[in-house]
């Protein structure tokens, strides 16, 4: 163990500890804001875990987030709380494995559309189930969880996700991902089982997203499919992770925190024109970056932060 490693670990623990103490000082609004922010940080980390190295642009985020939220709502009266999260995670895992097995051979825009449609499909299936089988559309969630409790759980999840992506980046799996991102032919000829690696990462990332949904659900008190499966969640997560630098450990955090605050401010001040402004921001970002978003992510960050390894691609 090098001194630098110890320093990093201590810094990480100090930051988490400081964040854990925050609810003792923060106002209720502050806690609400932090819950939202931590949720997006965790989603962005989860997204980057899979999409960063593999370059699969996934819009399935809200599919898993919504599954988590809905599982929480459906089982809130029959299952004890910690068990609830476990069940949600398992359902997310199951769906991710099935979806992954069927679709990870798709590439490019097919995958984008597929994942986007997945959220829509699950939303419609849940709606159909609720209307036809249970006979109601919305559900109430009454769980004895305080906002502080939600905050701490999300913090723990975010810390775990961060630690996991750190551990992966130093492991054999991390190297496998780098090689896959760079050249799949070399990867497979070196003995890497590409399909398994991708599936594993997709599932892991999906479980994180599912848990974010399950933990946040009690905040809403009332859920219905259009709330739980709101596609904006997928778009925001994508843009946060992408602009922060999906291939860098700190990237998702650097993207999620400022952008979350920006979106929060926008939706508070321009509730009716929110999506117009959001769209204009997307377009502006693309046009302001001279060589495109991908180039900015791969080179721009490397220039600004010399410690980072430039992930240049020669074609």
């Amino acid at each position: 163990m090098t001194p630098r490693f110890l320093l990093e670990i201590s810094a990480f623990i100090a930051v988490i500890a400081a964040l854990a103490l925050l609810p003792l000082f923060a106002s209720p609004y502050g806690i609400t804001l932090m819950i939202g922010m931590l949720g997006y940080v965790a989603l962005a980390i989860g997204w980057a875990l899979f999409s960063g190295p593999t370059r699969y642009v996934s819009l399935a985020t809200v599919a898993f987030f919504g599954i988590g939220a809905y599982t929480c709502a459906v089982f809130s009266e029959v299952l004890a709380y910690p068990l609830l999260l476990l069940v949600a995670g398992l359902i997310g895992l199951g769906v991710a494995l099935v979806v992954g097995l069927a679709t990870l051979r798709l590439a490019g825009v097919y995958f984008v559309i597929f994942t986007f449609g997945l959220a829509e499909l699950i939303r419609q299936l849940v709606t159909w189930y609720e209307v036809n089988i249970t006979g109601t559309l919305g559900r109430y969630i009454f769980l004895p969880v305080t906002p502080e409790g939600i905050y701490w759980q999300l913090l723990a999840l975010t810390a775990a996700a961060f630690a996991m992506s750190w551990a992966i980046s130093r492991s054999r799996l991390g190297l496998a991902l780098k090689v896959i991102g760079e050249d799949e032919v070399v990867a497979s000829h070196s003995g890497i089982d590409i399909a398994r690696v991708k599936l594993g990462l997709f599932a892991l990332s999906a479980v994180i997203m599912t848990l974010v949904g399950a933990i946040q659900a009690p905040r809403w008190t009332y859920v219905e499919p259009s709330i739980a499966f709101n596609p904006t969640v997928s778009f925001l997560t994508l843009i946060m992770a992408l602009l922060g630098g999906a291939n860098r450990l700190m990237g998702p955090i650097l993207g999620a925190v400022p952008l979350f605050l920006l979106f929060e401010w926008l939706s508070a001040n321009f509730p009716n024109h929110y999506s117009i402004i959001l769209g204009l921001i997307f377009i502006t970002i693309v046009f302001v970056l001279p060589n495109g978003v991908l180039d900015f992510i791969e080179k721009g960050w490397a220039r600004r932060l010399p410690v980072a390894k430039p992930a240049e691609v020669h074609k």
Binding site: R172, A176, K178, E182, D183, V185, G191, I192
Partner: peptide, 24 residues
Amino acid sequence: FQLVRALPSLSVTENVIVALAFGR
């Protein structure tokens, strides 16, 4: 490969480690 397939953003050592880590 006929047209070399290096992993350009990895170091030379890492390129070789790939085969060690996932090979036999």
